[in-house]
């Protein structure tokens, strides 16, 4: 009870997932191939963007997502601010729908997660079409969407790990 009243430790639920995302992105950016195929490139930061919104509202989380998004934009060489904006939009949607999301079954949570990933990809597509006058191929978007959806167990674990640690927001 004392632990729940004390709230969450920001290092545990914000800083550690951030660090894991950054390390994973660097590892998977190796110029390597396995059996002729390139390594997959999921959008790691969408996992905490979804999970942090479900766990509880926070003042620090949006800025953590901003930093994560800017890191991914800079490291991958994309438009600076694109992933930061997509992550914040996903986080905002999840925060707004927290009351609906809470208490849902695992299957429904997975469906919401898939919807959030699709939203982030749609934000990226719309910006590339109108902002950069490019047209990303649907197949390339689909591959990144699919491999990011496959990270759902990590998001579910993060929610499971921290959701019950601060009962004020349940």
């Amino acid at each position: 009870m004392r632990r729940a009243a004390a709230g969450l430790n920001p290092v545990q639920w914000l800083a550690v997932p951030m660090l894991i995302c950054i390390v994973a992105a660097i590892l998977f950016a190796m110029p390597a191939r396995a059996f002729g195929f390139q390594m997959p490139e999921p959008m790691w930061a969408l996992v905490p963007a979804f999970a942090w919104g479900v766990i509880r509202p926070s003042v620090l989380a949006p800025f953590a997502l901003l930093i994560l998004g800017l890191f991914f934009d800079g490291f991958w060489g994309g438009p600076i601010g694109l992933w930061a904006l997509a992550l914040l939009i996903v986080y905002g949607v999840v925060i707004a729908l927290r009351n609906i999301l809470s208490g849902q079954s695992e299957l429904m949570m997975f469906a919401w997660y898939v919807g959030c990933i699709a939203l982030a990809m749609a934000v990226g597509y719309v910006f590339m079409v109108f902002g950069e006058l490019g047209r990303p191929g649907p197949l390339s978007i689909f591959w990144q969407f699919l491999i990011t959806v496959a990270l759902y167990p990590a998001a579910a674990w993060l929610i499971e790990r921290f959701e019950d640690q601060d009962v004020r927001f349940r």
Partner: peptide, 15 residues
């Protein structure tokens, strides 16, 4: 020498 590689739909660059 190429030291990093990004392959997503919104950025394809190398260092």
């Amino acid at each position: 020498r190429v030291i990093s590689d990004s392959r997503g739909p919104f950025a394809n660059t190398r260092l």
